[in-house]
Design a protein around this nucleic acid. Sequence first.
DNA 1: CTCGCTATTGATGTGTACAACATTAAGGGA
DNA 2: TCCCTTAATGTTGTACACATCAATAGCGAG
Lengths: 237, 237
Amino acid sequence: METDPLITEPKRARERFEATHAEIRARIVLLDYRPGTKLSEALLAEEFAMSRTPMRRVLARLEDEGLLSSKHGVGTFVTNVEPEELGQVYRLRKELVLLQTSLDVVPPTPALVAQMQEIVARAKTLRITPCARDFSLLDQEMFLLLLDLTRNEPLRIMSKRLYFRTTRIWLQQVAGSETALLEEIDVFAREAAEILNALEIGDLDAVGHIRRGHISLSFARMSAERGSDPPANGYIR
Amino acid sequence: METDPLITEPKRARERFEATHAEIRARIVLLDYRPGTKLSEALLAEEFAMSRTPMRRVLARLEDEGLLSSKHGVGTFVTNVEPEELGQVYRLRKELVLLQTSLDVVPPTPALVAQMQEIVARAKTLRITPCARDFSLLDQEMFLLLLDLTRNEPLRIMSKRLYFRTTRIWLQQVAGSETALLEEIDVFAREAAEILNALEIGDLDAVGHIRRGHISLSFARMSAERGSDPPANGYIR
DNA sequence: CTCGCTATTGATGTGTACAACATTAAGGGA
DNA sequence: TCCCTTAATGTTGTACACATCAATAGCGAG
């Protein structure tokens, strides 16, 4: 029985599925595949060294998550996010972020605080050498780290889905101009520092409301940039 | 790549997929397939007059929704819901139900109120001729009806997933004894009447809080029935 | 009688050919 | 020239055979 520790080729089916899904999702979220891009099941299957059958399962899940859209006889496309949908997601995220620090929460561990300190430090570094892609990865890292504050698994799963659904639109805006990127990194650095401070005190409620405020402001900046209508605030006519 | 690929509508294959998914999900939530039941891809494919390939896509989605669990070489099984998971879902639902009447809401239409009146009437009828299955269907109908109060699509989708994830456990408890069923129908009839009253006044905030209270009480009754620990109320040690 | 190895069995997972579908370009008649 | 028809082409969706995996019954050694 030979087990090759160097090559991780013969993975379990489930692990291979998860890895492939995460990889393609990352490409969509990081705009390697921009909205509207046509993906080929055959080419992707070949690249990931599998047949179309398991690849189709990956793509089906990404479609269920709203990142892809397949049409019989036409192709599989990276979805765009309509302004209305973007607003719905952000308004919901504003509420869920409060639950992330109030529902089934665990006190922040020293390890978590340490990782948050590192994120703050890297944010400061990023202000010197701005890079939209690294910025998006750092934002993602902080999101996932703070998600560890709650043990409510359904809340964690849904929050992740919403985050990955729209973060590429945010990235698209941020990467649009150099000044916008610098400004956004600056805001992020301040937010991270505020959150770290609240974490060190142990005030999770403050963490939630700081984040809520920044999500709200972030959406407002995006709406202004897009030149669309001011965001609806509750009721629909 | 300028044209938006999202505007086209569902096709034949998609409709068949949705219909099959809804049917098997109904069988699971109505306890036709009880937790632990082993399902056969081949048999299900034969019954629905399709091959294993599209059926596997249906089952994969049900697994993603937490209703099924497949193991290579073993089988596909209807999942059970652990008490911890049940608590997490209920605690989250208690929060989401408030959002359903406060986030992107539309005023209740006369048609909606009329359907709610009918549900109240059928609840009263059900008190005379109790039937666990019909009761579950009525509860589901009210849930879906009240979900029309919000236009926030992500919230709607997530609320549905959570509801279908645990309602079979509630049904299992209710169908356990005749007295429990009668008592639960009585509670439901009163809740529906209260909600109807609030709807007619147009007080959506009251609708949300009435429902939240009933979800909380419902979970408390289930926990007591199961003889498990009293439900944690917020923090985890 | 018990333990352990092995062949068998039946399930999910994968590879591949083919069908269904939509788009596009070519061709022919008015 | 225009427009309708039709064949060609490439894509997703489906069917089916086969591979892989895990549980189990059978069997033989101790």
